[in-house]
Simulated scan of single mutants.
Amino acid sequence: MRNKMSDGSGVKLVPAVQNAMSIMRLLAAQGRPMGATQIARETELNVSSAFNILRTLSHDGLLSFDPQAKTYRMGMGLMEFAVPLLGANPTDVIRPSLTAIAQDHQTMIALWQITPTERIVLTDRFTAPNILHAVLAQNSRLPAFSGAIGRCYAAAMNLTEAQTRKGFDTVRWQDAPSFESYWADVSRARETRTGFDRGQLFRGLDIVASLVCDAQGVPRLGMSSITIAGQQSDDSLGHIAGALAEAAAQIERCLFGRPAET
């Protein structure tokens, strides 16, 4: 069982709260009632701890308990917390997470909408204060295969090499990579859910990205960190990519109802 006492940033976390969240995520992902023993096994908690958490959550209405079947499922009490977000602009919901990534990693994060016509459209930017950064015009449009996002897009769409090459040829690269290296990056993006572009789409810019897909696996949003070349080390770019991939997974679960990957 992994260590849940810290998130890796030195912040001390509360195990009981994390365990409760693990239980609720499990029940949300399963979409069906489960017994306490099975929940404990799936979340790697001892039965006593799981039972106490389940009893507390059901007491407050966050879970619903069936006394006949002795099973738990998501409760109507969750609507108390969800109602303020219903009908909200998705960008407003996403903003705190992307702003935090921008500030924590001293970068500029661009949020892109992915259209059905294989374009990406810049809808918002989130920038750390007092950093030198590139300026992109709102509503800028690029082919979906562009740069770091493009590598993630081809990976998420599970395109063939021939289909990817056709999309690759629609991009205006300032320092074009070979298609072979681009295709290799797509293969890596299938595993990591992140893409990198080092001065190829735009000279002098380092870009890392991840995608948000809906419940059917269709790419809906792109998130890219864009920094001046040399501002970030290879390691720090890797950390940014990891933060974007983690944010993408959370957005998928919360906004699009996509089950967490196991």
Rank of each mutant, 00 (worst) to 15 (best):
E42Q: 15
L62C: 03
R220K: 15
D92R: 11
Q113E: 13
S181A: 06
I39K: 08
F51S: 15
G257S: 08
R125D: 13
G61V: 08
S64C: 13
P67I: 01
S48L: 09
P15T: 07
C254Y: 01
S22P: 00
A144T: 02
W173K: 04
L45R: 09
P129W: 11
D234R: 14
S224M: 05
T227P: 05
Q200P: 14
Q231Y: 09
Q250Y: 04
A229K: 12
M74N: 07
N52P: 01
A40G: 01
M108D: 14
T117A: 09
S140I: 06
Q174M: 15
F145G: 11
L26R: 05
I149A: 05
H59W: 09
D175M: 05
A69V: 11
G195V: 07
Q250I: 11
A50S: 10
A36M: 10
P143G: 04
G8F: 00
Q231E: 15
A154E: 03
A156D: 04
A40M: 06
T37Q: 04
N158L: 08
L78I: 15
P143Q: 02
P177T: 02
E191C: 07
F202P: 03
W173I: 06
P90A: 08
I39G: 01
M223C: 05
M157G: 04
H59A: 15
S97R: 13
N19P: 03
H239F: 06
Y153T: 10
I120V: 13
N19A: 02
T91E: 12
G242E: 10
G75H: 05
N19L: 00
G230T: 09
T56W: 07
I53L: 12
T56R: 13
L221G: 02
G204R: 03
F145Q: 10
A229D: 08
